[in-house]
Amino acid sequence: MHDIVTVAVTVFMGFFAMMNPIANTAVFVGMTGDFTPQQRRQTAIKALVAAFCIIAAFCLLGKGIFEIFGITLPALRLAGGILVFLVGYHMLQGSSSKLHTNEQATPDKGEKVQPADIAISPLALPILAGPGTIATAMNYSASGSMLNIIVTIAAFAILCLITFVCFLYGPKLVDMIGENGINITTRLMGLILTVIGMQMLIQGVHDAYLLFDITPIPVIIENA
């Protein structure tokens, strides 16, 4: 039971740091500034449902994807660790990672944007369920254990609910925290992500060593 709780907390913190609901709320408020409360609610629901479906699909199909493309778990952990580390590094520097932004997503002044235009892209992809989040989900669920898959999906579902509440009260939350508060939160999440990324790298190196470690065949030299 203790191990399950530890895994659940680790998975949740990994997702929380990667998605960073506080910073994403500021992005959401900026992108939906001209929307009515009803349109903002519909956009948030559509984006989070789409993000959840994407992550759940990768959690459930991760093992099959590995088999189809011949991917090993150490390879995923090495690549995912680098990816997560880079995202965390950019957040530590106080800048947004290109994996979680879309430069063409910001509408021009005076241009009316419909909720459907931003719910899937860029909100669901790549802001909420970007490559880093997908790599994190597959890393935690790739062992193939149904319990790990359920814990990973449940942790992301809880995070989606928290993000939904943040989105609904976005303007008030942003005003209450302020720009400095968002910057501090972003840097803290970046620190957590760099540590998680490094841990994934270490685990990947360890698993790769065990996977490809070949015990040398002893050679018996007989005296002539």
Rank of each mutant, 00 (worst) to 15 (best):
I184D: 03
D207K: 06
G130K: 03
P74C: 03
H100C: 11
Y169A: 14
D34W: 01
F52S: 10
D108K: 15
F212N: 12
R40S: 02
T163G: 05
Q39E: 07
A116S: 15
G81I: 00
G190I: 00
N148G: 01
N139L: 05
M146W: 11
A135I: 08
I202M: 15
A44Y: 01
T186M: 09
D3N: 11
D34A: 13
A26V: 09
S97H: 05
S145W: 06
S143C: 02
L168M: 14
A57D: 01
N24W: 03
T163H: 03
A124H: 08
C166M: 14
Q104S: 15
T36M: 04
V27Q: 05
T43H: 03
I177V: 14
T25G: 05
H90M: 12
P37N: 01
R77G: 08
G110C: 09
H2S: 12
D175W: 01
A208W: 00
A8E: 06
L125Q: 12
I22K: 06
G204K: 00
F15H: 08
I177Q: 02
P74N: 07
L188K: 10
L76G: 06
G181Q: 02
I149W: 03
A154V: 14
S97K: 06
M91G: 07
I196G: 08
D117H: 14
I54H: 06
P131I: 07
I177H: 06
I162Q: 03
I153D: 01
G190Q: 05
F156T: 08
Q93R: 15
Q104V: 13
G130M: 03
I4H: 01
T185M: 15
P21D: 01
R77V: 00
Q38F: 02
M146F: 08
G88I: 00
V27H: 04
V7P: 07
T101L: 10
I55K: 09
S143H: 00
I4C: 04
N223L: 12
L191G: 08
A119H: 04
G178S: 00
G30D: 00
T106K: 12
